[in-house]
Amino acid sequence: MTRTLTTLHRRGHFFESGRWRDGRWWVSDFYAGAVYSITPDGDVTTELAVPHWPSGLGWLPDGSLLVVSMGDRRVLRRAPGGDVSVHADLAEYCEGLANDMVVTADGHAYVGSMGYEWDEARPQKAVLVHISPDGTTALASDEVTFPNGGSILSDGVTLVVADTFGSEALAWTIRPDGTLVDRRIWADLGVAMKIDAGGQIVGLPAAGLDGCAVDPHDRIWMADGVGRRALLIAEGGEIVDEVAAPEGLSVYSCALGGPNGTTLMLCCSPDHLPTPRQAAAESVIVTVEL
């Protein structure tokens, strides 16, 4: 299906972690060190400066904004009144960078990690960390190679997390205390990333699943940075729909929202690497009506 992409905002360094909240789009820009909100007409507000690279976004029940600070492995909390504090410290669990995050309606947060620093060529197995509403941290799962974008399904107790290197989406059931049980493969898209005996990447995954958003039928839109598109995936792995990125760009996050809830927002960039992205403001945010 041919669809028209509309540019919402351009000249970012690396847009990620798209969300829809309070009538605005919200995104992190890793290498600009800032969190932005953007109206559907494209008016931009800088919401928070995060010097150590912002990533995952979410909100507590009281309206506090949570932001993953990747480099120092923390989650920051901006209270409704504007005060900023450290909500949680993840350094005990994350050997590499902290990354994306999803927050439940009652304030339990799940943060993925990358298992390596940007300048390392040897990815290691990463972890998923649970943060209770009071900021207490615990290991949620170490059975995922690269936990990335996360979604909560409509039942409120099913967590689905993209495994970027595994080319699959994993699911868990959330207990009332926030712990995870019943790990299972929610969708398998094929070949996982290939890494040789020396730890070097020698083959890309079939789909580099990343930031995601649940549709009204509990299917999930997932960014595919390898395939340069966003995929609508049903449980079991069926690809129901897809939207291609603009020419020369890949999709690293997506969100559903807009005034009618039918707008798909895509965070697009030529790549995700620090050196070229810090040097050039080539990332864009586009929208498409579904």
Rank of each mutant, 00 (worst) to 15 (best):
I220H: 01
A126F: 11
R183S: 03
V157H: 15
V181I: 13
A162I: 07
T137W: 00
Q124V: 01
G166W: 02
F165A: 14
L189F: 08
L159R: 02
L204Q: 14
T179M: 06
L159E: 04
P205A: 08
N99Y: 05
I195A: 02
T145N: 10
H217D: 15
E168D: 06
E95P: 01
D182G: 05
P176I: 11
L153F: 11
E143R: 15
P176G: 06
H108P: 01
N148Y: 06
L153V: 10
S132Y: 00
F165I: 02
A140K: 05
A138P: 07
L128E: 10
G198R: 03
W221C: 07
D100P: 07
A207V: 10
H108E: 00
N99C: 06
D177K: 03
G211K: 06
A187E: 05
T173L: 03
M222E: 02
R183T: 04
S113L: 01
A98D: 07
T145G: 00
P216S: 11
A138Y: 02
A192R: 15
P205F: 09
G150L: 11
G149R: 12
A105H: 09
I220W: 01
C94D: 12
P147C: 12
G135K: 00
H217A: 15
T136A: 15
L159P: 03
D210F: 04
S113D: 05
A223R: 04
T145M: 11
R184Y: 11
R219Y: 07
L189T: 10
T179P: 03
D215H: 08
W186Y: 08
M193L: 04
G178P: 04
V157P: 00
G211L: 06
G149A: 13
V129I: 15
V111M: 00
G135A: 04
A138C: 06
L170A: 05
L189Q: 08
V144M: 15
D119Y: 02
Q200H: 14
V181N: 01
G96A: 08
A187P: 11
N148D: 14
W118H: 14
F165V: 01
G112L: 12
I131M: 05
W221N: 05
E143V: 12
D134M: 08
D196E: 02
G190F: 04
D224R: 08
A98M: 06
M114Q: 13
H130S: 07
G96P: 08
M101C: 13
E168A: 14
V181F: 02
G225V: 07
I131E: 00
F146H: 12
A213D: 12
A140N: 06
T158A: 10
G166E: 08
S167L: 06
P176L: 10
D142Q: 10
A206N: 04
T136S: 14
A121N: 14
D100N: 07
E168H: 10
V129F: 01
S167P: 10
A105D: 14
A138R: 15
R219S: 11
G107K: 02
I195L: 01
D218M: 09
D215S: 10
S113W: 00
D224W: 10
L209R: 07
Y116F: 14
V160I: 12
T179Y: 00
E117I: 00
D182K: 08
R175I: 03
E95F: 09
G96Y: 07
H130A: 11
V129L: 03
E143H: 15
D182P: 03
T164Q: 07
A109T: 01
M114L: 15
L97Q: 12
R184M: 08
G112Y: 09
